[in-house]
């Protein structure tokens, strides 16, 4: 076992709404994340996975419980933990290069050095020739690569990714999976990756936490024992994907029943879905 990097103890988070019962987003979460692990938080929306990420990032505060990084409690955001969001959030008034340099200048890195380091990272995400472009000139996938470069240039110990590829098309996402995996293998950062895409979680992670809703928390834990670099066709991955899917369906059924009432039958609906997907298969 590697040394613990992030430690969560009895972490609890609830949101209060005026005149309503508080919604429990996270209920008594205990979690140890070793250094250099690629961990995915997987689950349907509303399972508190983004909330958990935001608490680790310091952008949100837990209601109770402890969270430590390298044994020290978290007090607000810090540049040892950088977040990559679903949208790139690039500053439209800055060039691509200035966007990547932004955090370094906060860290008081001298301007010339900051520029050199930013350029190095733009090269790693294959965008060096767009350094002086404005963000609006880039495609969605390119923007997201800039956002990753902007996070990694800070050399954070921990990279927090909140559905970073969810808004991208399938091809771009596959390319970025490869790039992210090789960047991770090269830098050995601790990565916490939030996603609702099972395949994505399986392909990228060392360990997957399947999250549950109402109350939010960890339902099951899976360790992915496949060799790297990962191949999408690896039978271990395909098998695991199937296991997680069936587990997730049980969870989804619970969510949908709560939303649409008890008479909702997920299984029946799925049957319809299957017959649809076989349409034309025997032509």
């Amino acid at each position: 076992m590697l040394e613990p990097h992030i430690q969560l103890t009895d972490l609890h988070k609830s949101f209060e709404h005026k005149g309503q019962e508080p919604v429990i987003a996270l209920d008594q979460v205990n979690l140890t994340i070793p250094k250099g692990e690629f961990l995915s938080l997987l689950g349907p929306s509303g399972c508190g996975k983004s909330t958990l990420l935001n608490i680790i990032a310091g952008l949100d505060k837990q209601t109770s419980g402890d969270i430590t990084v390298n044994g020290k409690p978290i007090k607000g955001p810090g540049n040892d933990r950088i977040v990559v969001f679903q949208e790139s959030g690039l500053f439209p008034w800055m060039s691509v290069l200035d966007n990547v340099m932004y955090g370094l200048l906060i860290k008081k890195v001298p301007k010339e050095e900051a520029k050199a380091r930013a350029m190095k990272w733009l090269q790693k995400v294959h965008l060096a020739k767009f350094a002086h472009a404005q963000p609006h000139e880039l495609s969605g996938g390119m923007k997201q690569r800039v956002a990753i470069a902007r996070a990694l240039v800070m050399d954070p110990e921990i990279l927090l990714m909140d559905e970073p590829f969810a808004a991208l098309d399938e091809q771009t996402r596959m390319v970025l999976h490869k790039e992210l995996e090789s960047l991770w293998r090269e830098t050995k950062k601790t990565i916490i990756f939030v996603t609702h895409n099972i395949r994505e979680a399986v392909i990228l992670s060392d360990r997957i936490l399947l999250m549950k809703t109402r109350p939010g928390g960890v339902k099951r834990e899976y360790t992915v024992q496949a060799s790297r670099p990962r191949q999408a066709t690896d039978s271990v991955l395909v098998d695991l994907e199937g296991r997680i899917l069936s587990e997730l369906q049980l969870e989804m059924e619970k969510v949908l029943k709560e939303e649409f009432g008890d008479d909702y039958d997920f299984k029946k609906d799925q049957l319809h879905g299957n017959s649809d997907s076989h349409m034309g298969s025997d032509i």
Partner: peptide, 26 residues
């Protein structure tokens, strides 16, 4: 955009720096 503010905060910007480098330019 709140996202721009969150990005800046995760990079370590706060207080007047956040205003000068993000809120005002935006």
């Amino acid at each position: 955009p709140p996202l721009n503010i969150r990005v800046a905060r995760t990079m370590g910007s706060k207080g007047f720096h956040l205003f000068r480098t993000v809120i005002f330019p935006a």
